[in-house]
Computed example of a mutant assay.
Amino acid sequence: MSGSLIARKEFGDALRTRTLRLVSAVFALLVVGDAYLYTLQSYHTGSTADVVLHFVPAARALVPLVGLAVGYRAVVGERASGSIKILLGLPHSRCDVVRGKLLGRCVVVALPLLASFALAAALVATQYGGFALVPFAGFVLLTLLLGIAFVALGVGVSAATATPRRAAAAAVGAFALVELFWGALVNLVGYVVTGSASMTYPLPAWAYFVQQLSPTGAYEGLVRALVSRGTVQLAGGGPAPAYLSPWVALLVVLAWAAVPLAVGAWRFRNADL
């Protein structure tokens, strides 16, 4: 109950500070704008798979960025202002604070994301008769899961750090790791394993697995499975091993949410405020 009270406070603060409106504007402009551009391109078929795969690159870049931006000041901002002592002076434990901050910030991301993709789906559906809403709704839920994972990562970073500057640096580093440097990591592992500095498709199974150890890579694997293009073409052929299944990819996304949040909550619980 205490965590839900803090979550409601977080949502109210987001309304007062225009955070919710800013996130809504970002999602609306980019997601709905991307849907409009999709309808202008004559080579698109309007099938569910075509629509989903069109949205994946934008969702992969935008959703993690928004999730981290919303989450990284959740706890450390209160510590910097001194208001955390007032909050903890009420009948709230430190775990309640982390849990409430997570719930409130997830709502701040979830509502604009769902509304923007609903508008985008309506725009596309009016133009293409072959567009199916149910599989697209599954894609939106997977995108929401990705957003929640990065909010949890941001809140975990916020709880684990002592200053907003350190939290911002850690959030930027996390985004750079999963979005910019993970491909280089795959190539580095490939060099160690094969002796070659370049990886060409189709990749061996282990390379796909390393790709899917990032939250965005796991998200793409889940989306491929959703739109019936989940069959991975392996170097040398053959069926995909069990560790490339959607269930493993789902566990990877959940781990990226749970582990940083647990570490952050542990550090915050033991921090000297």
Rank of each mutant, 00 (worst) to 15 (best):
S2V: 03
L142F: 12
K101A: 12
T231V: 15
Y191D: 08
L65I: 09
L102I: 06
F268Y: 10
G156A: 01
Y243D: 02
R60F: 14
K85N: 10
G138N: 02
F117Y: 15
F131H: 02
L20V: 15
Q233M: 13
W206T: 04
T200K: 13
L53D: 00
A59E: 05
L30Y: 11
A255M: 04
V31F: 11
R73K: 07
V23R: 09
S47M: 06
G147P: 04
R105T: 09
A167G: 13
L141R: 01
A35G: 13
L133T: 08
L113G: 04
Q127D: 11
A257Y: 07
L261V: 02
A240D: 03
L203T: 02
T231Q: 14
V26I: 15
L133C: 02
P202V: 09
R267V: 12
A49G: 01
R224E: 09
G130Q: 10
A49F: 04
L133W: 12
T45V: 05
G154A: 09
H92K: 03
G46F: 13
V186Q: 10
S42E: 10
V232A: 00
A49N: 01
A171W: 05
V157D: 07
A149D: 08
L87V: 14
W266T: 03
V263E: 01
G154Q: 12
D272C: 00
G221M: 06
A218T: 03
F131L: 05
P164M: 07
G33T: 08
V98H: 09
L62H: 00
G71K: 01
F136H: 07
F150L: 10
K85D: 15
V263K: 01
G89W: 09
V253H: 06
A152F: 12
A7S: 12
L226I: 03
S83M: 08
V189E: 07
R18Y: 14
A110Y: 12
L261I: 03
A121C: 07
D272N: 00
V124E: 04
S158V: 05
A258I: 08
H92R: 02
L142T: 04
